[in-house]
């Protein structure tokens, strides 16, 4: 083997980007299970709607679309902040990473507050799990998602502590990436939920 080939071979791994799953395999199995659960719920909504179109369309109009859109923006922004937190940790900037995570948590808290206002308004109008098929789906889907946001906030909090303690650094990003993947999943699911439940009719 001549030297040129040896050199090329030794350089090769640095050129081809290493194929790597960011985050723990276990959380990805978990994320797939979550996607499956939401997917089944979305399909159930869509096919039930096909049998009750007028009811669904009429009751959908009564939803707070602005609140839904605002919450989309909050979740997307939180996700963006989480990305910045991961990138900061990759640059060894733990303090910056912690600040980005805190900002993400503020957005998450904003989501929770908006949602609570939305729920209290809905409950005042007599919306309940038994008031109609649309309301059943609206409450079930958004509440199931809401619980995920709460869990995601807890995870962000744990990551915030980790980042402040300087626990994440290049080569040791598993904890941060694992939590980040979960938060992005919460966002991803909402990106279907919002148009499906609030807009499409």
């Amino acid at each position: 083997m001549n030297t040129a080939t040896t050199a090329a071979l030794s350089v090769a791994p640095a050129i081809t980007v290493e194929r790597r799953l960011a985050g723990d395999l276990a959380i990805w199995i978990f994320i797939l299970a979550e996607l499956l659960a939401f997917g089944v719920f979305f399909a159930a909504y869509a096919f039930t709607r096909a049998n009750h179109i007028e009811l669904f369309d009429a009751e959908q109009v009564a939803l707070h679309r602005d609140a839904g859109a605002l919450n989309t923006v909050l979740l997307l922004t939180a996700s963006y902040f989480v990305v910045r937190a991961v990138q900061a940790a990759e640059r060894l900037a733990s303090a910056a990473s912690a600040r980005w995570l805190l900002a993400a948590m503020v957005c998450g808290a904003g989501f929770v507050i908006v949602k609570l206002f939305e729920y209290s308004a809905a409950f005042e109008q007599g919306v309940s799990l038994s008031s109609s098929p649309f309301h059943m789906f609206y409450l079930s889907l958004t509440f199931f998602h809401f619980m995920h946001v709460i869990l995601g906030m807890v995870i962000l909090g744990a990551m915030w502590f980790g980042a402040r303690a300087g626990r994440y650094r290049p080569g040791d990003m598993n904890g941060l990436e694992t939590g980040a993947a979960y938060w992005h999943m919460v966002d991803l699911v909402w990106l279907i939920l919002f148009p499906l439940v609030y807009v499409i009719h």
Partner: peptide, 15 residues
């Protein structure tokens, strides 16, 4: 029990 259990029960137990 109320009807929504048919949805909740079906979906979650299917998982």
């Amino acid at each position: 029990t109320p009807e929504y259990w048919q949805w909740w029960g079906s979906i979650f137990s299917a998982l």
